[in-house]
Computed example of a mutant assay.
Amino acid sequence: MLGYSKAAVSRQIAKLEQSIGVRLLDRTTRSVTLTPAGREMYARCARIVEEVNDANQVMTGMLSAARRAQGQRSGGILAVRSHHDPAALPPDLS
């Protein structure tokens, strides 16, 4: 998943759950599903990623306009990959 092993992702989620004191995933031997708190956390984080991407587009546009005015090449400012498309999640997490 996104270049990380399942074990690495599981450890990070377990650390997050311990840190916030809330279980985000229900784990069984056969499946992993989001808890209501997990769905809420996911939705909020997805909005944050979307806001960062929107801000990046605005800043890139402003930088491009400034560079065009100065005759320079345009470039990006900040890259955040958004993977919050529920279709991209494994079936038992969507």
Rank of each mutant, 00 (worst) to 15 (best):
residue 55 A to S: 08
residue 74 S to P: 08
residue 81 R to H: 04
residue 37 A to E: 15
residue 1 M to I: 13
residue 43 A to K: 12
residue 75 G to S: 14
residue 65 A to Q: 15
residue 93 L to F: 06
residue 20 I to M: 09
residue 6 K to D: 08
residue 86 P to L: 04
residue 57 Q to A: 15
residue 58 V to K: 14
residue 34 L to N: 07
residue 10 S to Q: 14
residue 41 M to F: 13
residue 14 A to M: 06
residue 77 I to R: 03
residue 89 L to W: 01
residue 82 S to P: 00
residue 70 Q to G: 09
residue 84 H to L: 00
residue 16 L to K: 07
residue 69 A to T: 02
residue 92 D to I: 01
residue 23 R to N: 14
residue 75 G to I: 01
residue 2 L to S: 13
residue 30 R to P: 00
residue 88 A to F: 02
residue 20 I to S: 04
residue 63 L to G: 02
residue 12 Q to H: 13
residue 60 T to D: 12
residue 26 D to Q: 14
residue 3 G to C: 09
residue 10 S to T: 13
residue 85 D to C: 10
residue 68 R to W: 05
residue 62 M to G: 06
residue 44 R to L: 13
residue 29 T to I: 10
residue 71 G to V: 10
residue 43 A to L: 10
residue 35 T to M: 08
residue 62 M to T: 09
residue 13 I to Y: 03
residue 4 Y to T: 01
residue 64 S to R: 15
residue 53 N to D: 08
residue 38 G to L: 08
residue 78 L to P: 01
residue 61 G to T: 05
residue 26 D to L: 13
residue 56 N to G: 12
residue 71 G to F: 07
residue 32 V to I: 12
residue 76 G to S: 15
residue 66 A to T: 11
residue 12 Q to F: 05
residue 49 V to E: 07
residue 50 E to Q: 12
residue 68 R to T: 11
residue 52 V to F: 05
residue 88 A to R: 12
residue 16 L to H: 02
residue 81 R to Y: 03
residue 22 V to R: 13
residue 52 V to C: 10
residue 79 A to V: 02
residue 2 L to I: 10
residue 77 I to M: 06
residue 7 A to L: 06
residue 79 A to S: 07
residue 23 R to C: 09
residue 31 S to Y: 04
residue 44 R to I: 04
residue 9 V to E: 03
residue 26 D to I: 14
residue 37 A to I: 07
residue 46 A to R: 08
residue 93 L to S: 05
residue 4 Y to W: 12
residue 82 S to V: 00
residue 50 E to Y: 07
